[in-house]
Write a protein that binds this DNA or RNA. Structure first.
Length: 258
DNA sequence: ATGGTTGTGCAACAA
């Protein structure tokens, strides 16, 4: 079984690339972020023709998340329960598999702009609420995957310039502490379960030839619960779509479970 | 060096 995450930075623009990628990478579930469209504009028909069901938490212009799955899902939850949030940032669903149900949580985590700003304060509140929610979800779903655009580079090796960017957004002690708090729920960073090339990143700024110079960050993550950890056989970042014309600034990340 | 690029939507904001 394969599960993937991809921040597409506008599904309207990126739909052809998503269809193209799914044709070559027929994953069982794909969590999308930054749809930038409302559910009424979601391309259900094109994705159904490609063999995918979709559940959507849309928003006009900003944010927006969805799950694409080969088989229908159950128990869909939009946003973090109990958190008053006008921004469409999470969608959870349960996927039945031959090995049993898997709880899938997809998040477009708050960017946070810069430490000391209102947006950073919102990021930290949001991360606290997410942590409490994921803890509750784990209590009833042993087999759980939390993935998405975390907007956090967990360690220095996840940044192209850890010294120059120390303490700046994606790199702060506070953000990294929240990432560690998620790991402390006995979640595991699937990418780091394996040997990986140095300077492996999942996002590159459109500006300053960021991708060509591999000046990126690893901020898109797939965390798996303890019950799933030993079934994971691979986790990779697919840079192929980033090389194509009019790409998303993020690359898809794929986890393979036995 | 406060630059540079992309998306939404048509000015300015978010990333």
């Amino acid at each position: 079984m394969q599960i993937a995450t991809w921040n597409v930075n506008s599904l309207s623009v990126r739909l052809p690339q998503v269809l193209d990628w799914l044709a070559s990478n027929p994953v069982d579930a794909l969590g999308l972020q930054e749809l930038k469209l409302v559910e009424e504009r979601f391309p259900f028909a094109a994705l159904e023709a490609a063999g995918y069901h979709a559940v959507v938490h849309g928003q006009k212009t900003y944010n927006g998340v969805a799950w694409l799955t080969r088989s229908p899902v159950l128990e869909v939850v939009r946003n973090i329960p109990g958190l008053a949030d006008e921004q469409a940032r999470t969608i959870a669903a349960t996927l039945d598999t031959p090995q049993g149900p898997v709880r899938l949580i997809n998040g477009y985590f708050v960017n946070g702009q810069a430490p000391g700003t209102d947006k950073f304060a919102y990021k930290m509140r949001w991360l606290s609420a997410l942590h409490a929610w994921v803890a509750a979800e784990l209590a009833c779903h042993q087999r759980l995957v939390l993935l998405g655009d975390f907007n956090i580079a967990p360690q220095d090796r996840d940044s192209h310039d850890p010294e120059g960017l120390r303490g700046s957004i994606h790199h702060t002690v506070e953000e990294r502490g929240q990432f560690q708090a998620l790991l402390d729920l006995d979640l595991h960073d699937a990418f780091r379960l394996f040997e990986q090339p140095e300077r492996s990143f999942s996002w590159w700024d459109y500006r300053m030839l960021g991708f060509q110079k591999n000046r990126g960050l690893r901020i898109d993550h797939i965390l798996v619960s303890a019950a799933l950890r030993h079934t994971v056989t691979a986790c990779t970042i697919d840079r192929t779509p980033r090389k194509k014309p009019q790409p998303s600034d993020h690359a898809p990340v794929v986890v393979t479970l036995g």
